[in-house]
């Protein structure tokens, strides 16, 4: 495998891993549930996407044949991640999880005004 190819694969892997780490950091660090929802749905999904691109290049170059089936995982995750975020958020809304004070337009507090 050529050196340039190794550098490209390493870049994708490290970028993906960093995004996954940032998503998990957001899950740990932010204050209320709805803010935590943002980290995993975006950063982690893109992180897995980056690592999968790295894996596709690695196996395609190693076997000298295009190996695309990892792409299915990325496709599936990009379809399901918003759906699971939506339904977890819906469950949290239903239970009226405590929000940060400064959140505007909290739905269950303004039912009276409109």
């Amino acid at each position: 495998m050529s050196f340039l190819l190794e550098v490209i694969i390493s870049l994708f892997l490290l970028l993906g891993a960093l995004f996954a780490l940032v998503g998990s950091l957001g899950l740990t660090r932010l204050q209320d549930f709805f803010m935590r929802l943002h980290g995993p749905t975006k950063a982690t999904t893109l992180g897995v996407g980056g690592m999968i691109i790295g894996s596709i290049i690695y196996f395609s170059a190693g076997d000298n044949a295009l190996s695309m089936h990892e792409l299915l995982i990325a496709l599936f995750l990009f379809i399901t991640a918003p759906v699971s975020a939506h339904i977890v958020g819906k469950a949290a809304l239903h239970r009226q999880i405590a929000c940060e004070e400064r959140t505007r337009n909290i739905p269950w507090q303004q039912n009276g005004d409109d």
Partner: peptide, 25 residues
């Protein structure tokens, strides 16, 4: 809260997928 824990599990399985892909490499 419970939704927090579900979200954590959700993120864990996505990270587990990433770990498996890299382990395959």
């Amino acid at each position: 809260s419970l939704p927090d824990r579900i979200l954590a599990l959700d993120t864990m399985y996505i990270n587990a997928i990433a770990l498996l892909v890299v382990f395959g490499m």
